[in-house]
Nucleic acid binder design. Sequence first.
DNA 1: GTTCGATACCTAGGATGCCTAGGTAATGCA
DNA 2: TGCATTACCTAGGCATCCTAGGTATCGAAC
Lengths: 107, 107
Amino acid sequence: MQTDRLKGNLELLLLSALTMGPAHGYGLIRRLREMSEGFFDLPEGTVYPALHRLEREGLVSSSWTDEPGRPRKSYRLTPVGERQLAVERVAWQRFGTAVGAVMRGTS
Amino acid sequence: MQTDRLKGNLELLLLSALTMGPAHGYGLIRRLREMSEGFFDLPEGTVYPALHRLEREGLVSSSWTDEPGRPRKSYRLTPVGERQLAVERVAWQRFGTAVGAVMRGTS
DNA sequence: GTTCGATACCTAGGATGCCTAGGTAATGCA
DNA sequence: TGCATTACCTAGGCATCCTAGGTATCGAAC
């Protein structure tokens, strides 16, 4: 069955990571890995499409850095994204509370 | 984007609910609703296929009650299911810890 | 000087897993 | 007789994450 709990939480993770400041995709992968002490080691094929989705929805905005060297696409939170992050945080907590109640067998 | 956090946690929820004793599908839906104070109100189309999956994997076993009235298929945890539940619990907690670390911006 | 690992971007298609929407049938009450 | 509730089921849809492939730059090692 191979549970993937990530489903539905990726958005929360990416938006959270961006509150520490703008970052590009590859850097976000590293940032999430560090912040979670290695727990989240997301493949690029997961993160890049997710960022594009977030941008399409207006939660993040991107800009190419015109520094020399490797091209980098920097993402930052938009005001809409910040509001959405607050919503996600509450939703996550509620979900966790409900799961906890079921696990503990109490209502 | 419509996060569905249930994905990957349904197994944990069903196995947890079954620790309170055997139950049939419809009853499990009610039990989860009560234990979570209304948070989890799972559609039948979610629960029945999941129970079949759990049975195929040997985590639960089923038996039709030969009581009169409506036919009911009662599910109970198998020993394998109990072990798997313990695994799931730890996995859930680890996941929660990791998400919490990212949300709080600390490593 | 070239080979390799790390950095940095991308996408098509597959797998998974929950949900929608449909179906059947028994019970009990209005 | 009709309707709500209980109780079971499944096909197909859809969203989302991942696999696996691709391109290209840079620095270090050989």
